[in-house]
Computed example of a mutant assay.
Amino acid sequence: MIRDIGRGIGGMKSLPVTVVMAMALGGCVPAGAPSIPFFGAYFPSWLLCAVIGILGALLVRVVLVRLGIDDVIPARLAVYVCVAAGIGFLVSIVSFGR
């Protein structure tokens, strides 16, 4: 069945089908993920963004505890996870444009 993909009418090779399939594979070229050199190794950028997001959420929590707002937040875990994700996404967009 796979051998019949490039065959046209009458069992002859179909050049347009082959060209379209080759062009479709052009999107599979590895463009490379953004990475950060750290102590001689390359780490993915999302890892740095996640750490910055977690540290930012901890900072936001400290500020909210000092203001007395932390006690009235419903579903604190979900709120702080969303804050960490938001900060991580913002850092990713600003730093790497992705």
Score class of each variant (00 low, 15 high):
A22M: 15
A22V: 11
A33W: 07
I73Y: 03
V79N: 03
M23W: 05
S45W: 10
W46N: 09
I69L: 13
M23N: 07
V51C: 07
S35L: 03
L64H: 00
I54K: 09
V65N: 14
G32C: 07
S35G: 01
M23Q: 05
W46T: 08
I93Y: 04
A75Q: 12
F38K: 00
F38D: 04
A31L: 15
G86H: 12
V83S: 12
Y80F: 06
I54S: 04
V72H: 13
R61I: 01
A85E: 02
P37N: 08
L64K: 09
V79S: 06
I54Q: 12
R61V: 03
R66A: 04
V91K: 08
P44L: 02
V72L: 13
P74G: 01
W46V: 02
G56Q: 06
S35C: 01
I73A: 04
S35F: 03
I69W: 07
L55K: 10
I73M: 07
G68W: 08
I87A: 13
L59C: 15
F38I: 07
I52H: 10
R76H: 03
I87L: 08
L59V: 11
R66W: 06
R76A: 02
G68Q: 05
G40H: 11
A84K: 09
I69G: 02
L67M: 10
S92E: 12
F89M: 07
A24L: 14
A31Y: 10
S35P: 00
G88R: 10
P30Q: 08
L67I: 00
C82D: 01
P30E: 04
A75L: 13
A57D: 01
A57K: 05
A75E: 11
A75D: 06
F89D: 00
L47V: 13
W46C: 00
A84Q: 04
A57V: 03
D71P: 07
G26Q: 13
A33N: 11
F43S: 03
L48H: 05
V91D: 08
F89K: 08
L59G: 13
S45Y: 11
V72K: 10
A78E: 04
G86E: 05
G56R: 06
V72I: 06
A78C: 03
L64C: 06
I36A: 04
G32Q: 02
V62Y: 14
A50P: 11
A78T: 15
V51F: 03
S45I: 06
A24E: 04
G56Y: 09
Y80E: 01
S45F: 07
Y42K: 15
V29T: 14
G86L: 12
L48C: 10
A85N: 11
V65P: 08
C28N: 07
L55H: 04
L55Y: 05
D70E: 14
I73E: 02
S95V: 14
D71R: 15
G40D: 01
L77C: 05
V83G: 00
G27R: 14
